Simulated assay, not measured.
Amino acid sequence: MKVVVAHNRYREAIPSGENVIVDTEMAQLSAAGVQVLPFQRSSDSIGALPAAQKALLPVSPIYGRAAQRDLAALLAEHHPDVLHLHNPYPLLSPWVVRTAHAHGVPVVQTVHNYRQVCSSGLYFRDGHNCTDCRGKVIGWPAVRHRCYRGSAAQSAILATALAVHRPTWRSVDRYIALTDRIADHLRDYGIAERQIVVKPNGLPDPGEPDPLGDGFLYAARLSPEKGLGLLLDAWRRHPDGALGELRIAGDGELRPLAERAATERGDVTYLGVLDRAGMVAARRAAAVIVAVPTWNDVLPTVILEAMAAGRPVLGTTVGGIPYLLGAGQPGPAAGWAVAPEAAALAAALPTARAQAAALAADARKRYVQEFHPDVLTPRLIEIYRDVAASSGRARE
């Protein structure tokens, strides 16, 4: 089986769980015998583009000419069974769906965010959840609030792209919704039930977990929707040192908040930006991983990494987090899910510290049973085969 994996990579300076998932999935598919044909562009390359391509950048979310030309050549040469799309913005554009269909290739898309409707992809702006653009033909609220990269002009282009490509998105052969909430988002958008399958992301098995460390680790992009302010508000409701150490890793606009907390309290350490080895070491040193976004975060990779490493997670009851942790499901949960409020989080912190050792094995077990490559890779290949068979392109 041949599969084109199409993805516009996010900038490497800002850690992206989506980039990690795409790389991991391609490696898992290759190991399972699938011939993977990467078709990727990187937002890091924009500065080095030729002048002619830079001139076309404003319309690339609508129609990326260079991407369509290159993709058409790849499809004509290799005749793949399926194209699997992740992020199309800004250099690929959703037009890759039309290009694939023009060559008789069915399309699967993994939905990592809400960008069929929301220009930022988050359903979040100005510190609160927002669905102002839902149900509108053109998302003018996104333009008014400068939701895409803080620019009214770029927001207008993306809002136009979303309107133009409504028929494109509805033509995708199969959507992979990472959680039930994403499936609901797609149904609300008008996607037929037969086009949707729920399959979460997974990560490679890092091996048997190390013994628990101590304290808490928060590792995320330091932006408002990721909940750093919420966490620090809750943390300050306890005396300095009462909960062990809080380590903060990452970078972003709220970095000064993390740095200031580290200077004000002896039990807060700001680790800065960590590479992969640094993240492994930071997880090993912790007893509990904290993931407390206030937006409807779809499927935070940091939680998958925590469970794989046998670390329970203190999370918020938003997006896909309760699903990830198994909250309200049969069997033991992999952590604690609390309301995204400072009082609720403050009350949960000492509980998490006291019960971490008891839940560590449950966290690892949930990863092995639900998010291990041995479970998820065969499911993904079956999705490909089903879509290819429906289009008449099935082959081994």
Score class of each variant (00 low, 15 high):
155 S>T: 11
338 V>S: 07
160 T>H: 02
22 V>G: 04
318 V>D: 11
156 A>V: 00
210 D>Y: 02
242 A>V: 02
3 V>T: 04
266 G>I: 07
64 G>I: 02
269 T>N: 02
173 D>C: 02
169 W>K: 06
296 N>R: 13
348 A>F: 08
211 P>N: 05
127 G>I: 05
7 H>D: 04
209 P>D: 00
69 R>F: 01
277 A>P: 01
204 P>W: 12
366 R>E: 01
299 L>V: 00
149 R>Q: 15
104 G>I: 02
327 A>G: 03
383 I>R: 03
292 V>A: 15
294 T>H: 01
54 K>S: 08
262 A>K: 11
232 L>Q: 07
254 L>E: 13
249 A>C: 09
218 Y>R: 05
128 H>Q: 15
2 K>H: 09
289 I>H: 01
217 L>G: 07
37 L>W: 07
103 H>Q: 10
314 L>S: 05
53 Q>L: 14
368 V>F: 01
67 A>L: 03
203 L>M: 14
316 T>I: 09
132 D>F: 07
352 A>V: 00
249 A>N: 10
247 R>G: 04
118 C>L: 09
163 A>L: 10
42 S>T: 06
92 L>T: 03
106 P>T: 12
90 P>Q: 11
136 K>N: 12
186 L>F: 03
73 A>K: 15
163 A>V: 10
14 I>P: 00
384 Y>D: 02
191 I>L: 06
116 Q>I: 09
312 P>F: 10
146 R>W: 07
221 R>S: 05
164 V>Y: 04
245 E>N: 06
79 H>K: 15
227 G>T: 07
103 H>W: 03
16 S>M: 05
189 Y>M: 03
124 F>C: 05
157 I>G: 08
54 K>N: 05
375 V>Q: 11
347 A>Q: 15
129 N>Y: 01
152 A>S: 14
179 T>M: 08
380 L>N: 08
27 A>Q: 13
312 P>G: 04
147 C>Q: 03
63 Y>K: 12
139 G>L: 09
122 L>C: 09
93 S>M: 10
89 Y>R: 09
394 A>F: 12
36 V>S: 11
172 V>L: 08
84 H>E: 10
190 G>N: 05
216 F>L: 04
285 A>M: 03
97 V>M: 00
374 D>Q: 08
56 L>Y: 11
149 R>G: 12
9 R>K: 12
